[in-house]
Amino acid sequence: MKIQKILFLIFFSIVIISCNDSDDKEPIKKEEPPIEDMSGFAKGADVSWLTEMEAENVPFYNSAGEEMECMSLLKSMGMNSIRLRVWVNPVDGWCNKTDLLVKAKRANDLGMRVMVDFHYSDSWADPAKQNKPAAWEDLSFDDLCLAVAEHTTEVLTALKNWDITPEWVQVGNETGNGMLWDDGKADTNMAQYATLNNYGYDAVKAVFPDAKVIVHIQEGDKNNKFRWIFDGLKNNGGKWDAIGMSLYPEPDTWQTMNDNLISNVNDMISRYGSDIVICEVGMNWDEEDDAYDFLSDLISRTETIDKCLGVFYWEPQSYGGWKQYTKGAFDETGYPTKAMDAFE
């Protein structure tokens, strides 16, 4: 019996040694699925309303009638990028830093690229209004500049701490006449607008040096407007990496407006050497055939321009009278319209 036990122990030891030796060998590699290429031309959407819509149990469906999470649905339809606005201290909390982080993480986890759109306001900043946040209203101009830098840094650092790297960052939203009025109103003090812009620009670069900083102007078909604001910024030391444009045509105007936008794009590239991003587009949801033609034409033409980086639809998932907005690309029952096919 002793001999048998000894022989068993010797055999067992040899097996253990053999197993340990095999650990040093290269493991058999399983074939991984190909990684989807999400680089190149950006086809995206601003979905900043999404979490608020979900809180109201608004559903989204694919063409097969299956309910889907909205960003996953957009990705399945050819979109590779998500744009998200951020407000300073919104009354209801939506689109604040925390809400931005939630949406940005979801986009990032899906492998989608992220654009951050700073409004530098507690609510909408657009051509009609560029209101200061309530907490900034009584600041001196110097302190207002610091507030822009601190807010930009705080939000972007929070993203960085969550391992989210935005590809683009807007310093202001549709700032065709500057931002943070009246201090930064361009037609009364272009130099101060340029200074405020630069505090935002420098803050972005300090956190994400490779992010492209966008100055975003409305009415992308209006070349004179763009020349005025960007000549003004350039002459006052203003900094930017890319020029952002909006375009909201009607069914009977989209062809002319697209032609004018393309002409403007080429002029901006020639004049300033800037990259271009079409940050916002839209058309009424029930004009889906015209919207499809408009978007297909716009995307196909901008894709051929080397320095044009992408096209973003503004809140395509809004439907059914959400916020009284009618320029989404979903029908009244939560299905994507034909307009979305332009992104495939």
Rank of each mutant, 00 (worst) to 15 (best):
L295G: 09
W314L: 00
D293Q: 15
A329I: 04
Y325A: 12
D275M: 05
G310Q: 03
T302M: 14
E280H: 11
A291H: 11
I276S: 10
T337D: 06
E280K: 08
P316V: 00
T302K: 14
D289F: 02
V311Q: 13
G321E: 06
P336A: 14
N284A: 09
W322T: 15
S296Y: 09
Y319D: 00
W322I: 15
L298V: 00
D289M: 02
K323I: 09
C308M: 08
F330T: 01
D275N: 09
P316G: 05
E332H: 11
L309V: 04
D286K: 09
Y335E: 02
E280I: 12
Y325F: 14
L295I: 11
W314C: 01
Y319V: 00
T333A: 04
G310F: 01
A291Y: 13
R301M: 13
K327N: 12
Q317P: 00
Y319G: 00
Q317I: 07
K327D: 12
K327F: 12
W285R: 07
A339H: 09
E287P: 06
E280T: 10
I276H: 05
P316F: 01
Y292H: 14
T333Y: 00
T337V: 01
I278Q: 03
A291F: 08
V277C: 07
Q324W: 13
M283N: 07
Q317W: 01
D297F: 07
T337A: 08
Y335T: 05
W314N: 01
L309Y: 04
G328H: 06
W314D: 01
T326E: 14
F330R: 02
N284Q: 13
D331E: 05
S318H: 11
I278Y: 02
S318M: 15
K327P: 08
S300V: 03
D290M: 03
L298N: 04
E303D: 06
I276L: 05
W314R: 00
W314Y: 09
E280L: 09
D289S: 02
Y313E: 12
T302V: 15
E288G: 03
W314A: 01
L309I: 02
K323T: 07
A339E: 11
D297A: 14
G282T: 04
